[in-house]
Design a protein around this nucleic acid. Structure first.
Length: 825
RNA sequence: GCGGCGGUGGCGGAACGGUAGACGCGGGGCCCUCAAAAGGCCCUGUCCGAAAGGGUGUGUGGGUUCGAAUCCCACCCGCCGCACCA
């Protein structure tokens, strides 16, 4: 017999050439196709920087398994690939080296393409896109203008987060908890600047409610809910009589209104200086505000910090009782939440209590605990109870009831109304950077901000020499480009020089894949109907808030504008866990990076892909282990060798594969194992349990090895071909090779195998015999045996007798097909 | 503090309320070999025992059940997200 040696590189390049040449994974749009038989499987598109890392390998190995499984089930599968090519890293690289971002991005994209091919990912390359190409951002700009025309994109001056290092503004979501820039780690400052915003807050309620309609991991949904931060309460108006100004506040506790003893405004509140002006506090207030504004959010956000603030020397009227209560400015009140001003109820709020103690302000209890908590007379008291010290008609009411009654009363009096508040802020999308899609707006002295006409799109990025940010967009230096004519009046105009946040680019790319080469529109509605929404989206949990929220928002906004007929872009989401090494995230600084290229070089793509799926549940973090990789490599080697030897013994692979239920002995046992594996792998694939699916194929192969000498060649042929067929979604090259050798066919053209019921059924099984719930023996039982027969079998088992002897059987549990449990005393 | 997820051998991890530890790694023994590599076979939670077998064992303590890693209650620990959000 020939001495066979598994050679992954030869096998992998051979099959990759076939797939390349025949464009095997290409799908066409077919208008009469049944949507239910189409599947859109999508992994988050990579940001092309340097080379792909292990996380990419995991993501695409995972998605590819799902894509292949769906194809083998007979579905038409859309499985495209693209690149999120705009962004700061390429631009920072350009600042450092002078290399055009387009060139460094192109080099990185080429590296990603090479590696995706070398991994054998089943991509429809005809739909490939990159967000920095004018043919793509043409439509990013078009979407922006659609939003602009609908009033969903607007410009306003606002206190914005500014990164002094990157010299650009950031979205709230791009500032981390320490108040640092997510990209470069520098402390972020607050600046008042004119910026472009997208009105995502209009969609807060729908973004929240529709979470219930999608099949997403609960932790991602929770993160989105937290981020949207909905709270119910009331907006209540407090009037400053001295200046004749109304100050609405948002409160979730209108039931405590009678306990409001002072009023606090955020340092950023535009009226703070006006209020203090001319009072003896003016100077002190000015100093306090200056200090507060220079503090980081983290400093201000520290709950342990003693409360600070300054009196404004004014009062407002508490609308429920007409009391004049003093006004303060304090940094514990945030401008971005609610109205930037609060009513303070020290008796029932910890922060207000701390402030009241520090400033010696009155504390009035308006809720008294009842029942078990009646003993609790400590303040502040945030629990429920009955109203006291309020008004006769409210006193004595349970506070939850009083809340509604008070809001109703305020409404009637015109002093307030029920209200819902959200933490979610509008999305700041303008960036003072070069490497992004230009915002297609022209400013005109007489017409204002004018959209660039559709037939002039795309507004292409001009060539510039200096990418260094100087507090304004580098695009401003391209004078020829900036100076243009107003599309509206034909007079002199200046182009918007800011570019869009790259999250705008990635908020709609999944739509473009459906119709990627359309030169006349972003997409054709019919093309979208064939594929959208995405059946299965796959990516890292780090995008739980930003990307996934923005994409949902785009979908809803575009649907409202009549461009889409669905509300949610991603029906199902799967978030993969990280790949760690030595217990930590891989990073260059730690020096624990494992490059996919080096693994593929050493053991081949099939082993790399299989290992990363085998190591554990894909949604959990996985520790990289070189010896674990070797184990998987041994498994694939054994499979391939045994298949090659068996193929040689069979001679011709053209005969049909047979699994005859009439087989006997070891042949029957091996066939059964094969059918068991079919059942197991199919089931596991449906629930993304790739690790146990691969383990099942390993078990099948172990049986093949063990029974190699004793079974018929045709039995072995069937078992090994089945192993190859089942392994195809995970290790496509070696699986295709094995299957071709044994079955003479292309495995991806063969339907997914189905288990033979007759072979799954056994005429005998191992009956577990328990006494008092403890395993005491196992005996062979016939499949159809009655409960009485099973009980008798169990009683006859020697080790059962030993434990039943001399005792009384008080209960018998018989689970046919499983076990008998005898309860004795 | 609030919310989510998790805790099983030396390690990664399996287990519809029904044989805990599949599969893989690591470890041990053996075969093949002049030798090694590669490959193959067997053993491998723990304690008692020569073995048969028995005890014990899924973070801790209770509970439900004939039977609990799994369900319920309380707690401990770890990870992730949010957090002066009015």
């Amino acid at each position: 017999m020939t001495d066979y040696q598994y050679d992954p590189h030869a096998i992998e390049s051979r099959w990759q050439e076939v797939w390349e040449r025949e464009q095997t994974w290409r799908v066409t749009n077919s208008h009469d196709a049944d949507r239910a038989n189409n599947a859109y499987i999508l992994e988050m598109l990579p940001y092309p920087s340097g080379e792909p890392h292990i996380g990419h390998l995991k993501c695409y190995a995972l998605g590819d398994a799902i894509a292949h499984f769906n194809r083998r089930l007979g579905r038409r599968v859309l499985h495209p690939m693209g690149y999120d090519a705009f962004g700061l890293p390429a631009e920072n690289h350009a600042i450092k080296t002078g290399e055009h971002p387009r060139d460094s991005t192109a080099a990185s994209i080429a590296s990603f393409q090479r590696q995706f091919r070398s991994w054998g990912i089943s991509i429809d390359w005809s739909r490939e896109l990159a967000t920095h190409e004018p043919s793509y951002y043409h439509w990013t700009q078009w979407i922006f203008l659609e939003l602009f025309k609908a009033g969903l994109a607007y410009r306003k001056e606002a206190a914005v987060k500014w990164c002094p290092h990157d010299q650009t503004v950031l979205a709230n979501e791009q500032v981390d908890a320490d108040g640092r820039c997510e990209r470069c780690g520098h402390l972020v400052e607050v600046r008042q600047l004119e910026q472009w915003f997208l009105r995502i807050t209009d969609y807060a309620e729908r973004l929240l409610g529709d979470l219930d309609t999608i099949d997403w991991p609960s932790n991602v949904k929770t993160m989105q809910r937290n981020w949207i931060g909905r709270s119910e309460g009331a907006e209540v108006t407090f009037r400053c009589e001295q200046l004749g100004i109304d100050y609405p506040v948002f409160t979730t506790r209108p039931d405590t209104l009678f306990g409001a003893t002072f009023f606090v405004m955020a340092p950023e509140h535009p009226d703070v200086m006006r209020l203090a002006e001319g009072t003896e506090h003016e100077h002190e207030v000015r100093e306090y505000v200056n200090v507060a504004l220079n503090e980081t959010n983290q400093e201000r956000g520290n709950a342990e910090k003693p409360k600070t603030g300054v009196s404004l020397g004014r009062t407002v009227t508490n609308p429920v009782n007409g009391e004049q209560i003093p006004m303060y400015v304090a940094d514990y009140v945030l401008m971005e939440y609610g109205t930037g001003a609060i009513m303070a109820v020290p008796a029932h709020d910890e922060r207000d209590y701390a402030f009241a103690r520090a400033f010696d302000l009155p504390i009035r209890r308006v809720i008294a605990p009842t029942g078990e908590e009646a003993e609790d007379d400590a303040l502040p008291y945030a629990g429920d109870g009955v109203l006291v010290n309020s008004r006769e008609d409210f006193d004595g009411l349970p506070n939850r009831e009083a809340l509604g009654a008070i809001v109703h009363w305020l409404d009637v009096e015109g002093k307030g109304h029920a209200s819902v508040n959200y933490k979610l802020r509008d999305w700041l999308v303008s960036r003072q950077r070069y490497w992004g899609a230009p915002i297609p707006i022209v400013y005109c002295e007489s017409c204002g901000a004018v959209p660039v006409p559709e037939d002039e799109l795309p507004v292409e990025l001009p060539e510039i020499d200096d990418y260094t940010p100087k507090g304004r967009s580098p695009l401003a230096a391209a004078e020829d480009w900036v100076n243009t004519t107003c599309p509206s009046c034909g007079g002199a105009g200046r182009r918007e020089t800011d570019t869009m946040d790259t999250f705008v680019d990635s908020s709609w790319y999944f739509l473009r894949y459906c119709d990627p080469t359309n030169a006349h529109a972003a997409w054709d509605a019919q093309a979208l109907r064939e594929w959208m929404p995405v059946d299965q989206y796959i990516g890292g949990v780090e995008h739980a808030i930003l990307h996934l929220m923005y994409a949902r928002f785009f979908c809803k906004a575009l649907a409202d504008l009549g461009h889409l007929d669905f509300q949610e872009p991603f029906k199902a989401l799967f978030t993969q866990g990280m790949v760690t090494k030595d217990g930590a995230k891989m990073s260059k600084s730690r020096g624990n990076v494992v490059s996919p290229a080096s693994i593929v070089e050493r053991v081949g793509a099939d082993t790399a892909r299989c290992y990363i799926l085998f190591v554990g549940p894909p949604d959990q973090d996985a520790e990289w282990s070189d010896s674990g990789v070797e184990g998987v490599h041994r498994f694939l080697s054994r499979l391939w060798r045994l298949a090659a030897e068996t193929a040689e013994a069979v001679g011709s692979a053209s005969a049909p594969l047979v699994s005859d239920a009439g087989a006997q002995g070891d042949d029957l046992a091996l066939l059964r194992k094969a059918h068991w594996a079919i059942e197991k792998v199919s089931d596991d694939l449906r629930r993304f349990a790739f690790n146990t699916a691969i383990a099942a194929v390993m078990e099948l192969l172990n049986d093949c090895s063990r029974l190699r000498e004793t079974v018929e060649t045709q039995t072995m042929r069937f078992a090994l071909a089945t192993a190859g067929s089942l392994l195809f979604p995970f290790a496509p090259h070696v699986a295709a090779d094995v299957y071709e050798r044994l079955a003479g066919e292309r495995v991806w053209e063969a339907p997914w195998p189905s288990a033979d019921e007759e072979l799954l059924e056994r005429d005998e099984y191992e009956l577990v015999c328990q006494v008092n719930g403890k395993l005491r023996d196992r005996v062979q039982a016939a499949t159809g045996a009655s409960a009485d027969e099973l009980k008798a079998l169990c009683l006859a088992a020697p080790n059962v007798q030993a434990h039943v002897e001399g005792k009384q059987i008080v209960k018998e549990i018989v689970v046919p097909g499983k076990l008998v449990n005898l309860v004795v005393r």
